[in-house]
């Protein structure tokens, strides 16, 4: 897991969800722990796309449930 990706994912998450940085740990679920509803998740995924210059297809959004999932997914996507 890339430390740089984690740092950026945490930054985007803090900004998009208005949560405290210390809450955004790898195991935190966006919906269960960080208060995101279904619209917030779509917005968050779009922010990840913008931040990392990648496309996240709708049918793959389900893989991203936690902060750690997002980092793993983005690293995989970037190295592909």
């Amino acid at each position: 897991m890339s430390a740089d990706t984690l740092e950026k994912v945490r930054k985007v998450t803090v900004e998009e969800l208005g949560v405290k940085e210390e809450e955004v740990v790898e195991s935190a679920s966006f919906t269960e722990d960080l208060g995101a509803d279904s619209l917030d998740v779509v917005e968050l995924v779009m922010a990840f796309e913008d931040e990392f210059g990648i496309d996240i297809p709708d049918d793959e959004v389900g893989e991203i449930k936690t902060v750690g999932d997002a980092v793993t997914y983005i690293d995989k996507k970037k190295s592909a």
């Binding site: 900004e15 998009e16 969800l17 208005g18 949560v19 208060g35 917030d40 917005e43």
Partner: peptide, 8 residues
């Protein structure tokens, strides 16, 4: 408003 809503 809460921070998340206020921003957008």
């Amino acid at each position: 408003l809460d921070k998340k809503e206020a921003r957008r």
